[in-house]
Design a protein around this nucleic acid. Sequence first.
DNA 1: AACAATGCCAACCGCACGTCT
DNA 2: TAGACGTGCGGTTGGCATTGT
Length: 290
Amino acid sequence: MDHYSQYVDNNNQKSDEETNNLDLKRGSWTIEEDFTLMNHIALHGEGRWNSLARSAGLKRTGKSCRLRWLNYLRPDVRRGNITLEEQLLILQLHSRWGNRWSKIAQHLPGRTDNEIKNYWRTRVQKHAKQLKCDVNSKQFKDTLHYLWIPRLVERIKASTNSNNNQVNNIQQTNYDNIIINNNNNNNNIVQNIMNNFKQENYSSTTTTSSENSFGSTQISDISDNCYTNYPLNQGDYHGEILINPTSDYFQHGIIDDNNHQQNMSQLFFDDVSDKFWNQEDMLFLQQQLN
DNA sequence: AACAATGCCAACCGCACGTCT
DNA sequence: TAGACGTGCGGTTGGCATTGT
Protein backbone atom coordinates (compact mmCIF):
# COMPACT_ATOMS: atom_id res chain seq x y z
CA MET A 1 0.00 0.00 0.00
CA ASP A 2 1.22 3.47 -0.74
CA HIS A 3 2.31 4.94 2.53
CA TYR A 4 0.60 8.15 1.79
CA SER A 5 -2.69 6.70 0.71
CA GLN A 6 -3.65 6.75 4.32
CA TYR A 7 -3.81 10.48 4.27
CA VAL A 8 -7.46 11.00 3.78
CA ASP A 9 -8.99 13.71 5.79
CA ASN A 10 -8.53 14.89 9.28
CA ASN A 11 -12.14 14.66 10.26
CA ASN A 12 -11.31 11.64 12.36
CA GLN A 13 -9.36 13.76 14.73
CA LYS A 14 -10.61 13.79 18.25
CA SER A 15 -11.76 16.99 19.81
CA ASP A 16 -9.62 17.25 22.86
CA GLU A 17 -9.87 20.33 25.01
CA GLU A 18 -6.15 20.84 25.17
CA THR A 19 -5.75 20.30 21.48
CA ASN A 20 -8.44 22.81 20.63
CA ASN A 21 -7.11 25.41 22.99
CA LEU A 22 -3.65 25.21 21.52
CA ASP A 23 -4.92 24.70 17.99
CA LEU A 24 -2.93 21.48 17.78
CA LYS A 25 -3.52 18.86 15.15
CA ARG A 26 -4.03 15.17 15.74
CA GLY A 27 -4.47 12.12 13.61
CA SER A 28 -2.65 11.11 10.47
CA TRP A 29 0.24 13.17 9.26
CA THR A 30 0.10 14.88 5.86
CA ILE A 31 2.88 14.84 3.27
CA GLU A 32 3.45 18.52 3.91
CA GLU A 33 3.86 17.96 7.63
CA ASP A 34 6.29 15.13 6.97
CA PHE A 35 8.42 17.27 4.70
CA THR A 36 8.34 20.13 7.16
CA LEU A 37 9.49 17.88 9.97
CA MET A 38 12.18 16.18 7.90
CA ASN A 39 13.56 19.46 6.60
CA HIS A 40 13.61 20.97 10.04
CA ILE A 41 15.45 18.01 11.51
CA ALA A 42 17.88 17.98 8.59
CA LEU A 43 18.72 21.60 9.30
CA HIS A 44 18.59 21.72 13.07
CA GLY A 45 18.79 18.16 14.28
CA GLU A 46 16.42 16.30 16.53
CA GLY A 47 15.60 16.68 20.19
CA ARG A 48 13.78 19.30 22.23
CA TRP A 49 10.66 18.15 20.50
CA ASN A 50 8.23 20.69 21.89
CA SER A 51 10.28 23.65 20.81
CA LEU A 52 11.13 21.87 17.58
CA ALA A 53 7.43 21.52 16.80
CA ARG A 54 6.87 25.20 17.46
CA SER A 55 9.86 26.49 15.55
CA ALA A 56 9.07 24.24 12.61
CA GLY A 57 5.60 25.71 12.52
CA LEU A 58 3.98 22.34 13.03
CA LYS A 59 0.69 22.36 14.87
CA ARG A 60 1.65 19.15 16.59
CA THR A 61 2.78 18.21 20.05
CA GLY A 62 6.44 17.49 20.54
CA LYS A 63 5.51 13.96 21.38
CA SER A 64 3.71 13.53 18.11
CA CYS A 65 6.69 14.89 16.15
CA ARG A 66 9.09 12.62 17.98
CA LEU A 67 6.94 9.60 17.37
CA ARG A 68 6.48 10.40 13.70
CA TRP A 69 10.21 10.83 13.25
CA LEU A 70 11.27 7.76 15.18
CA ASN A 71 8.65 5.37 13.85
CA TYR A 72 8.29 6.54 10.31
CA LEU A 73 10.47 9.28 8.91
CA ARG A 74 13.89 8.29 10.17
CA PRO A 75 16.00 7.26 7.16
CA ASP A 76 17.11 4.01 8.75
CA VAL A 77 13.63 2.75 9.51
CA ARG A 78 13.08 -0.61 7.88
CA ARG A 79 9.69 -1.36 6.50
CA GLY A 80 8.06 -4.48 5.18
CA ASN A 81 7.48 -7.95 6.52
CA ILE A 82 9.31 -9.18 9.57
CA THR A 83 11.80 -11.76 8.32
CA LEU A 84 12.25 -15.23 9.74
CA GLU A 85 15.46 -14.19 11.42
CA GLU A 86 13.78 -11.19 12.94
CA GLN A 87 10.90 -13.33 14.17
CA LEU A 88 13.36 -15.69 15.77
CA LEU A 89 15.10 -12.83 17.48
CA ILE A 90 11.85 -11.33 18.69
CA LEU A 91 10.71 -14.61 20.21
CA GLN A 92 14.08 -15.19 21.76
CA LEU A 93 14.44 -11.72 23.19
CA HIS A 94 10.87 -11.52 24.39
CA SER A 95 11.33 -14.74 26.30
CA ARG A 96 14.23 -13.08 28.02
CA TRP A 97 12.95 -9.56 28.57
CA GLY A 98 9.19 -9.71 28.24
CA ASN A 99 7.44 -6.64 26.91
CA ARG A 100 10.57 -4.54 26.84
CA TRP A 101 9.89 -3.52 23.29
CA SER A 102 12.44 -0.79 23.00
CA LYS A 103 15.13 -3.04 24.36
CA ILE A 104 14.17 -5.75 21.92
CA ALA A 105 14.09 -3.23 19.10
CA GLN A 106 17.68 -2.29 19.80
CA HIS A 107 18.66 -5.72 18.56
CA LEU A 108 16.69 -5.45 15.35
CA PRO A 109 18.28 -2.65 13.36
CA GLY A 110 15.76 -0.47 11.62
CA ARG A 111 12.78 -1.92 13.42
CA THR A 112 10.87 0.23 15.87
CA ASP A 113 9.54 -0.80 19.22
CA ASN A 114 6.10 0.01 17.94
CA GLU A 115 6.47 -2.35 15.01
CA ILE A 116 7.74 -5.18 17.18
CA LYS A 117 4.99 -4.58 19.68
CA ASN A 118 2.41 -4.68 16.92
CA TYR A 119 3.94 -7.86 15.56
CA TRP A 120 3.73 -9.49 18.95
CA ARG A 121 0.18 -8.42 19.57
CA THR A 122 -1.17 -9.28 16.16
CA ARG A 123 0.73 -12.48 15.38
CA VAL A 124 1.98 -14.07 18.54
CA GLN A 125 -0.99 -13.26 20.73
CA LYS A 126 -3.25 -14.40 17.95
CA HIS A 127 -1.68 -17.85 18.07
CA ALA A 128 -2.03 -17.93 21.83
CA LYS A 129 -5.68 -17.11 21.41
CA GLN A 130 -6.06 -19.87 18.85
CA LEU A 131 -4.50 -22.29 21.30
CA LYS A 132 -6.84 -21.02 23.98
CA CYS A 133 -4.08 -20.29 26.39
CA ASP A 134 -2.64 -17.15 27.87
CA VAL A 135 0.33 -15.70 26.08
CA ASN A 136 2.17 -15.55 29.40
CA SER A 137 1.32 -19.09 30.43
CA LYS A 138 3.98 -21.73 30.77
CA GLN A 139 2.12 -23.79 28.23
CA PHE A 140 2.38 -21.17 25.58
CA LYS A 141 5.97 -20.42 26.45
CA ASP A 142 6.73 -24.10 26.10
CA THR A 143 4.98 -24.08 22.77
CA LEU A 144 7.14 -21.21 21.65
CA HIS A 145 10.20 -22.78 23.09
CA TYR A 146 9.79 -26.33 21.91
CA LEU A 147 7.88 -25.89 18.72
CA TRP A 148 7.79 -22.45 17.27
CA ILE A 149 11.40 -21.43 17.73
CA PRO A 150 12.83 -24.78 16.61
CA ARG A 151 10.63 -24.68 13.57
CA LEU A 152 11.77 -21.17 12.82
CA VAL A 153 15.35 -22.30 13.00
CA GLU A 154 14.49 -25.24 10.82
CA ARG A 155 12.86 -23.04 8.26
CA ILE A 156 15.69 -20.60 8.21
CA LYS A 157 18.09 -23.45 7.69
CA ALA A 158 15.88 -24.95 5.03
CA SER A 159 15.59 -21.71 3.18
CA THR A 160 19.31 -21.21 3.46
CA ASN A 161 19.96 -24.66 2.06
CA SER A 162 17.42 -24.10 -0.62
CA ASN A 163 19.09 -20.88 -1.62
CA ASN A 164 22.46 -22.57 -1.62
CA ASN A 165 21.17 -25.15 -4.04
CA GLN A 166 19.68 -22.54 -6.23
CA VAL A 167 22.86 -20.57 -6.30
CA ASN A 168 24.96 -23.61 -7.04
CA ASN A 169 22.76 -24.80 -9.84
CA ILE A 170 21.95 -21.64 -11.67
CA GLN A 171 24.28 -19.38 -13.54
CA GLN A 172 24.69 -16.10 -11.84
CA THR A 173 22.47 -13.25 -12.78
CA ASN A 174 21.73 -10.08 -10.96
CA TYR A 175 18.95 -11.91 -9.19
CA ASP A 176 21.31 -14.64 -8.12
CA ASN A 177 23.62 -12.08 -6.68
CA ILE A 178 20.81 -10.92 -4.49
CA ILE A 179 20.21 -14.47 -3.33
CA ILE A 180 23.87 -14.95 -2.58
CA ASN A 181 24.02 -11.80 -0.56
CA ASN A 182 20.87 -12.56 1.37
CA ASN A 183 22.02 -16.07 1.87
CA ASN A 184 25.27 -14.98 3.41
CA ASN A 185 23.40 -12.66 5.70
CA ASN A 186 21.09 -15.47 6.73
CA ASN A 187 23.99 -17.73 7.47
CA ASN A 188 25.64 -15.15 9.63
CA ILE A 189 22.50 -14.31 11.52
CA VAL A 190 21.52 -17.91 12.09
CA GLN A 191 25.03 -18.78 13.12
CA ASN A 192 25.05 -15.97 15.65
CA ILE A 193 21.68 -16.96 17.02
CA MET A 194 22.73 -20.56 17.33
CA ASN A 195 25.93 -19.59 19.04
CA ASN A 196 23.97 -17.47 21.48
CA PHE A 197 21.64 -20.33 22.18
CA LYS A 198 24.46 -22.72 22.71
CA GLN A 199 26.22 -20.35 25.04
CA GLU A 200 23.11 -19.94 27.10
CA ASN A 201 22.42 -23.62 27.09
CA TYR A 202 25.76 -24.78 28.23
CA SER A 203 27.30 -21.89 30.08
CA SER A 204 24.95 -22.25 33.02
CA THR A 205 26.32 -24.36 35.82
CA THR A 206 23.04 -24.66 37.68
CA THR A 207 20.77 -26.73 35.55
CA THR A 208 18.21 -29.25 36.54
CA SER A 209 15.71 -31.52 34.97
CA SER A 210 12.13 -30.45 35.01
CA GLU A 211 8.91 -31.23 33.31
CA ASN A 212 7.63 -28.99 30.61
CA SER A 213 3.97 -28.56 29.97
CA PHE A 214 3.97 -31.36 27.45
CA GLY A 215 5.10 -33.86 30.03
CA SER A 216 8.58 -34.49 28.72
CA THR A 217 11.87 -33.73 30.34
CA GLN A 218 13.94 -30.73 29.56
CA ILE A 219 17.13 -29.24 30.82
CA SER A 220 16.20 -26.04 32.50
CA ASP A 221 18.00 -23.25 34.22
CA ILE A 222 16.63 -22.98 37.73
CA SER A 223 16.64 -19.31 38.35
CA ASP A 224 16.14 -17.98 34.90
CA ASN A 225 12.85 -17.17 33.31
CA CYS A 226 14.58 -17.29 29.98
CA TYR A 227 13.18 -20.00 27.75
CA THR A 228 16.19 -20.64 25.65
CA ASN A 229 17.45 -23.81 27.15
CA TYR A 230 16.76 -26.33 24.49
CA PRO A 231 19.74 -28.12 23.04
CA LEU A 232 20.77 -26.62 19.78
CA ASN A 233 23.55 -28.42 18.06
CA GLN A 234 23.53 -27.64 14.42
CA GLY A 235 22.37 -30.54 12.35
CA ASP A 236 20.90 -32.66 15.09
CA TYR A 237 18.90 -30.34 17.23
CA HIS A 238 15.48 -31.24 15.97
CA GLY A 239 15.65 -34.76 17.33
CA GLU A 240 16.11 -33.41 20.84
CA ILE A 241 13.71 -30.58 20.68
CA LEU A 242 10.67 -32.48 19.68
CA ILE A 243 8.17 -33.12 22.34
CA ASN A 244 7.19 -36.68 21.91
CA PRO A 245 9.38 -38.75 19.63
CA THR A 246 6.74 -41.40 19.22
CA SER A 247 3.94 -39.13 18.17
CA ASP A 248 2.55 -39.00 14.68
CA TYR A 249 3.57 -35.44 14.63
CA PHE A 250 7.16 -36.38 15.09
CA GLN A 251 6.93 -39.21 12.62
CA HIS A 252 5.22 -37.32 9.87
CA GLY A 253 5.50 -33.69 10.72
CA ILE A 254 8.61 -31.89 11.61
CA ILE A 255 11.29 -34.30 10.50
CA ASP A 256 9.73 -35.06 7.19
CA ASP A 257 12.62 -33.28 5.65
CA ASN A 258 11.87 -33.89 2.03
CA ASN A 259 8.51 -32.26 2.11
CA HIS A 260 9.52 -29.95 4.83
CA GLN A 261 12.45 -28.35 3.15
CA GLN A 262 10.57 -27.93 -0.04
CA ASN A 263 7.70 -26.30 1.73
CA MET A 264 9.98 -24.15 3.74
CA SER A 265 11.85 -22.88 0.73
CA GLN A 266 8.56 -21.93 -0.81
CA LEU A 267 7.46 -20.27 2.34
CA PHE A 268 10.61 -18.28 2.58
CA PHE A 269 9.56 -16.14 -0.29
CA ASP A 270 6.02 -15.71 0.99
CA ASP A 271 4.82 -14.01 4.05
CA VAL A 272 5.54 -16.89 6.33
CA SER A 273 4.36 -15.43 9.55
CA ASP A 274 0.82 -16.69 9.29
CA LYS A 275 1.76 -20.08 7.93
CA PHE A 276 3.63 -21.44 10.89
CA TRP A 277 0.62 -23.10 12.30
CA ASN A 278 -1.20 -25.15 9.78
CA GLN A 279 -4.24 -27.17 10.72
CA GLU A 280 -2.14 -30.15 11.65
CA ASP A 281 -0.01 -28.03 13.94
CA MET A 282 -3.01 -26.49 15.60
CA LEU A 283 -4.69 -29.82 16.16
CA PHE A 284 -1.57 -31.25 17.65
CA LEU A 285 -0.95 -28.28 19.88
CA GLN A 286 -4.48 -28.20 21.13
CA GLN A 287 -4.26 -31.89 21.94
CA GLN A 288 -1.09 -31.28 23.88
CA LEU A 289 -2.47 -28.33 25.74
CA ASN A 290 -5.85 -29.77 26.64
C1' DA B 1 -23.08 -6.66 -3.98
C1' DA B 2 -23.56 -5.53 0.69
C1' DC B 3 -22.61 -6.01 5.18
C1' DA B 4 -20.02 -7.86 9.24
C1' DA B 5 -15.99 -9.50 11.32
C1' DT B 6 -11.27 -9.49 11.73
C1' DG B 7 -6.45 -8.02 10.92
C1' DC B 8 -3.15 -4.66 10.87
C1' DC B 9 -0.67 -0.69 12.21
C1' DA B 10 -0.02 4.39 12.90
C1' DA B 11 -0.91 7.38 16.35
C1' DC B 12 -2.28 8.67 20.89
C1' DC B 13 -2.36 8.39 26.03
C1' DG B 14 -0.78 8.12 30.68
C1' DC B 15 2.88 7.31 33.42
C1' DA B 16 7.71 7.20 35.01
C1' DC B 17 12.04 9.05 35.09
C1' DG B 18 15.81 12.33 34.37
C1' DT B 19 17.35 17.07 33.99
C1' DC B 20 17.16 21.80 34.77
C1' DT B 21 16.17 25.95 37.26
C1' DT C 1 14.00 20.61 47.59
C1' DA C 2 10.26 21.17 44.55
C1' DG C 3 8.17 22.07 40.41
C1' DA C 4 8.43 22.45 35.36
C1' DC C 5 9.77 20.45 31.40
C1' DG C 6 11.51 16.98 28.09
C1' DT C 7 11.87 12.37 26.88
C1' DG C 8 10.99 7.46 26.58
C1' DC C 9 8.21 3.56 27.39
C1' DG C 10 4.33 0.23 27.29
C1' DG C 11 -0.55 -0.01 26.67
C1' DT C 12 -4.50 1.26 24.04
C1' DT C 13 -7.34 3.16 20.43
C1' DG C 14 -9.25 4.12 15.99
C1' DG C 15 -9.60 3.67 11.19
C1' DC C 16 -8.47 1.55 6.81
C1' DA C 17 -7.85 -2.91 4.44
C1' DT C 18 -8.89 -7.48 3.91
C1' DT C 19 -11.55 -11.53 4.44
C1' DG C 20 -15.70 -14.01 5.35
C1' DT C 21 -20.73 -14.61 5.00
